[in-house]
Simulated scan of single mutants.
Amino acid sequence: MTTSIQIDARWDDDAHVWIATSADAPGLVVEAQSWRAMIDEVRAVLPDLLELASMR
Rank of each mutant, 00 (worst) to 15 (best):
V45G: 02
W18Y: 11
T21H: 06
R10K: 07
A37G: 06
G27P: 05
E31C: 13
V17W: 03
S34D: 15
V45F: 06
Q6F: 14
P26I: 12
V42M: 07
R56S: 14
V17A: 03
Q6G: 03
M1E: 02
A32V: 07
A25M: 09
T3G: 02
I19V: 15
A15R: 14
D14R: 07
S22V: 12
D14E: 03
M55Q: 04
D8N: 14
V29P: 05
D24W: 11
A20S: 14
W35H: 05
V29K: 10
W18C: 09
T2L: 10
H16I: 03
I19Y: 06
R56V: 08
A32P: 04
A20I: 12
S34E: 01
A23C: 13
R56I: 11
D24V: 05
A20R: 01
E51H: 12
T2I: 13
S34C: 01
M1F: 13
W18M: 07
L28H: 00
S54L: 09
V17M: 15
L28V: 09
R56A: 01
R36N: 10
Q6V: 14
A9Q: 15
S54I: 14
L46P: 07
L52R: 04
D40W: 08
I7E: 00
A32H: 01
R43C: 13
A15P: 14
S34Y: 11
G27Y: 04
T3H: 11
M55P: 12
D8K: 13
V45H: 02
A44G: 11
A44C: 06
A25V: 03
E31F: 13
L50G: 02
I19E: 06
V30T: 04
M1L: 05
S54G: 10
S4E: 15
A44H: 15
R10G: 11
E31T: 03
G27K: 06
M55K: 15
L50K: 02
S54H: 14
A23E: 14
T2Q: 08
T3E: 02
H16Q: 09
Q6Y: 08
S4D: 03
A44V: 05
T2G: 09
D24H: 11
S54A: 15
R43E: 10
A15M: 12
S22K: 03
A44I: 03
Q33H: 12
T3N: 05
S22N: 12
G27V: 10
L50W: 01
V30E: 02
A15I: 15
W35I: 05
V45C: 06
E51R: 12
D13L: 12
T3P: 03
T21Y: 04
A15F: 14
D13M: 12
A53K: 08
V17N: 11
M55D: 15
D8Q: 12
T21Q: 14
T3A: 10
S34T: 15
L28K: 00
E51F: 02
E51L: 07
D8I: 08
E41T: 10
I19Q: 05
M1H: 05
L50S: 03
S34I: 09
Q6P: 00
A25E: 04
D8G: 02
V42G: 01
R56F: 05
